[in-house]
């Protein structure tokens, strides 16, 4: 027994990396223990509740749009709440997590320890990206789950969904559509998070990351609204963000959702690739 122990020790005398699962668990713990993350998730839970109360209080044939479709149609609420939040609030949450992940650690001086620690730089980027993705996923899940509950309890709608095409979906299929939108939103947020991480690796000031991401989203929105610049639309991440309404059409058209997901994957590759290069060269 003792010899095998010795052998194992000598067989890997230069182990320089910690097990990945432990790193990921530590990162998630670190992210979730921050009070601001918890407060943020709590506030996200309020969004569908507020929309539901607003719709019930207003109580008249609301106009068109996703919000109008929620009236008497509770299971549309999570989709509407996710779509509304995707415009600014969810990117804000993701940008906050990404800003803390690298720039925040740099400003506290703790990044030096991470860069000197026996953890590969690329692995560090992966762990940080995972932490951001966890925040995005949790935020989306909170909105989706609270949305389903608030939609069923406050708005009502007998578990069925009336689609924009005038057909009626059963509860199972309706929940499937909600899950589809949730996954799609997580994909879009992953793209935002990757770009935010790239910005985060460039600076030591978390506020710069936050301002750049939100400013960028607003600029994208403005560019997308100018008719003369419609050739620019396919390049903009935000131009496909109306596709979530497609989940309420029947038969389900996947073109818009698929194209915006592909675009998000491209932004994800750019953001993560840039972050990897930058962190590789960053001085401790």
């Amino acid at each position: 027994m003792s010899t095998s122990l010795v052998e194992r020790d000598t067989a890997q005398p230069t182990r320089t990396t910690a097990p990945l699962d432990r790193l990921l668990a530590a990162e998630v713990r670190w992210v979730l223990r921050r009070p601001r993350t918890l407060v943020m998730l709590g506030l996200f839970a309020l969004i569908p509740v507020l929309i539901a109360i607003g719709i019930v209080v207003a109580d008249r044939q609301a106009g068109g749009g996703l919000i109008g479709a929620v009236a008497g149609n509770g299971l549309v609420l999570p989709i509407a709440a996710l779509t509304l939040s995707l415009t600014l609030l969810l990117p804000l949450a993701v940008a906050m997590a990404a800003a803390d992940a690298i720039a925040g650690e740099a400003s506290h001086g703790t990044l030096r320890g991470l860069l000197l620690a026996p953890v590969g730089r690329l692995r560090l980027v992966g762990v940080k990206a995972f932490g951001v993705l966890v925040v995005a996923t949790l935020a989306v899940l909170v909105i989706a789950v609270v949305g389903v509950l608030a939609g069923s309890l406050i708005v009502g709608g007998s578990g069925q969904v009336v689609t924009l095409s005038g057909t009626t979906l059963g509860t199972g299929e309706a929940l499937g559509r909600v899950a589809l939108v949730a996954v799609w939103v997580i994909g879009q947020l992953a793209a935002v998070g990757a770009i935010a991480l790239a910005l985060s690796s460039l600076t030591e000031h978390p506020l710069v990351v936050l301002a750049s991401v939100l400013g960028g989203l607003i600029v994208f929105g403005v560019l997308g609204a100018i008719p003369a610049l419609d050739w620019l639309q396919p390049w903009l991440l935000t131009s496909g963000w109306g596709a979530s309404a497609d989940a309420l059409r029947d038969p389900l058209p996947l073109g818009g959702l698929g194209e915006s997901t592909l675009r998000a994957l491209c932004y994800l590759a750019i953001g993560l690739g840039f972050t990897a290069v930058r962190m590789q060269r960053r001085d401790a």
């Binding site: 690329l122 675009r263 491209c266 932004y267 590759a269 953001g271 972050t275 990897a276 290069v277 590789q280």
Partner: peptide, 24 residues
């Protein structure tokens, strides 16, 4: 590290090219 840097550059370039393919 340099190899990983290259992979990072490659990923970023692939993303940019992919965006172009979607846009065109």
């Amino acid at each position: 590290g340099r190899a990983w840097s290259r992979i990072g550059v490659g990923a970023a370039l692939a993303g940019a090219v992919g965006l172009g393919l979607i846009a065109v």
